[in-house]
Design a protein around this nucleic acid. Structure first.
Lengths: 102, 102
DNA sequence: TCTATCGTTCGTAAACGATAGAACAATTAA
DNA sequence: TTAATTGTTCTATCGTTTACGAACGATAGA
């Protein structure tokens, strides 16, 4: 797998991040990654086809929410918590802490 | 002007609120309302036609982000801060505090 | 009344986004 | 070399979203 592009911290936009987080599938990915990072794409049990899942991982990556590190035949995903906390303090934490209807 | 429907606090969804906030025009509305609430729709100087602005106000209202109270020929808008804070503690504050690229 | 104001609603067009299947590329294991 | 695994990319579809102008409705004021 080849190295993918990730936006630098400074160019993350608030609307971009909010939009990336506003989809239930993507929010589920983010919540899983917050609990234990370093998971490959295939380990998420998402209710969509793998091409659709790939699309969602890409949206999260391009918004700067996750990092995708190639390793063998898979990508290891992790939350870009430090970058997110630096750019939008408290945002991710409040999103992760939210309860109730998705 | 007639009374409009507002979702009850309990039925606000995280993805719905995040989506409503993920548009630059709507985010601008929310930021203005956070600075001083009780503003009519026409006072916002938005870069879109009034029918489009009306659409954005509706999206914010239906997501539970703002309240629109009819008064004479206009609607007085305000942030539903208490409801938002109760459902998603810290979320709105972090969104309002965010700096840098929109 | 008549008029002006404020915002919604309607109709329409263009752009976007979520979805999936098929084909592809890269890597690993047999 | 062959096969299996992992995930991407391509293509297409379908519904949603944003946008605008025109028309409409409600209210206030002259």
């Amino acid at each position: 797998m080849r190295e993918l592009n990730h936006p630098p911290r400074k160019s993350l936009t608030l609307t971009g991040v909010l939009y990336a987080l506003s989809d239930p599938v993507r929010l589920a990915i983010v919540k899983h990654l917050a609990e234990d990072g370093g998971k490959a794409c295939g380990t998420f049990c998402l209710p969509v086809a793998k091409s659709t899942a790939s699309h969602h991982f890409r949206v999260l990556r391009e918004a700067g929410v996750i990092q995708m590190r190639p390793e063998g035949t898979q990508y290891i995903n992790s939350l870009r918590r430090e970058d997110l906390d630096a750019r939008f303090p408290g945002l991710i934490e409040s999103v992760l802490r939210a309860t109730g209807p998705i």
